[in-house]
Design a protein around this nucleic acid. Sequence first.
DNA 1: TGGCTTCCTATCGACGGTCGACATAAGCCA
DNA 2: TGGCTTATGTCGACCGTCGATAGGAAGCCA
Lengths: 114, 114
Amino acid sequence: MKPRTDLLQGTLEMLVLTTLADEPMHGWGICERVQELSEDVLKLNHGSLYPALQRLKRRGWVRSEWRQTENNRRARYYALTAAGRTHLGDEVAQWRRSSQAVERILDLLPGAGE
Amino acid sequence: MKPRTDLLQGTLEMLVLTTLADEPMHGWGICERVQELSEDVLKLNHGSLYPALQRLKRRGWVRSEWRQTENNRRARYYALTAAGRTHLGDEVAQWRRSSQAVERILDLLPGAGE
DNA sequence: TGGCTTCCTATCGACGGTCGACATAAGCCA
DNA sequence: TGGCTTATGTCGACCGTCGATAGGAAGCCA
């Protein structure tokens, strides 16, 4: 397996795909969900989210359709495709490997372990 | 505490500072060390490392001096400053918070937990 | 009716970190 | 002499993220 050289980028896309794994959501909802689930540690900017959504769609990992919100507003609902689900699995596995590697290095810090 | 919006970037700098926490090293050695400690999961490119080292130096987190290698070659040895050590502590704390938040979200994935 | 707030999508320019390729030099060894 | 390893560094291109900005539609209230 080749080492990843880009370190921990692309987390945003993984997070978006993850929140869509349960059920289709619209962009606004994705933002709220991530912030809420992370207990305000993480935050998605709209200016980052929508371009990301377009990338994911272009790559076929996500599909979208206009629907009506519970609040009777029109919104684009995004849903994970089969390919997207597979890709998400790969992303998560890679992220876990990388973050564990970082953790291993951090644990060597004086005053970290024991 | 404000949520971090830049997600998991800047890991490279944290990793560099971490490897310098033990003892001063030269750039080449830092690359090798990170790759080795991470068991080839992580890899630092020279083209990313040296600019990063210059940033760290400019910010006063690292100090450098020319020295002789074990192999009798000249190399720039980088050492963590006191400010750098403090900053590293902050970075690590923030990284742990963020990665744990990501992990919490990932754990909600169907087939992840239980 | 008018105006305000909330919900929701979207784009833009700027910024900055990373990448891969390239240049350079010095020591080692055959 | 030539080639390999160690070592530092630069460069242009790319791309994701950011913060600001725009705008539309529904709901609320006076």
